[in-house]
Design a protein around this nucleic acid. Structure first.
Length: 117
DNA sequence: CGTGTGACGCGAG
DNA sequence: CCTCGCGCCACAC
């Protein structure tokens, strides 16, 4: 099975995105859009998910969630459960597949669309 | 080159 | 709380 050869540009973008994800501290979370913006790609949150899917390394992918605080996976999927356990083991409370952004969002000053509660 | 798809985001009902 | 629609962009076909 040959790995899909990414274009040089895409590979570079993925590297930048992974570099940002790697900076998310333990016990904090960031949204896809926030990671994209920090990596230099505003309005391209989907690129972040792509970068994580094609990633093999030990990246804290579980600290990346949607802008509304919800875990991106279907709440019944095994991936969502794995992400929940990883977050909870870091002290991040997950209620009904959602993280309280007001408590656990990384760099809330940069981007906080849903700061309720 | 048009179309569909998705670990997204956001506003309207 | 929910669903829909549209914008967004890379990629598979």
């Amino acid at each position: 099975m040959a790995v899909k050869p990414l274009t040089e540009r895409t590979e570079y973008r993925y590297l930048r995105i992974r570099a940002v994800v790697a900076q998310i501290p333990v016990g904090k979370v960031a949204s896809y859009g926030q990671v994209a913006a920090l990596a230099g790609f505003p309005n391209n949150a989907r690129l972040v998910s792509k970068a994580l899917v094609s990633d093999n390394s030990t990246l804290p992918w579980h600290r990346v969630i949607r802008s509304d605080g919800k875990i991106a996976f279907s709440d019944t999927s095994s991936m969502a459960q794995r992400q929940r356990s990883r977050l909870e083991s870091e002290g991040v409370a997950v209620t009904r597949n959602r993280v309280c952004l007001s408590r656990f969002l990384w760099q809330p000053n940069l981007y906080h669309p849903c700061d309720t509660d």
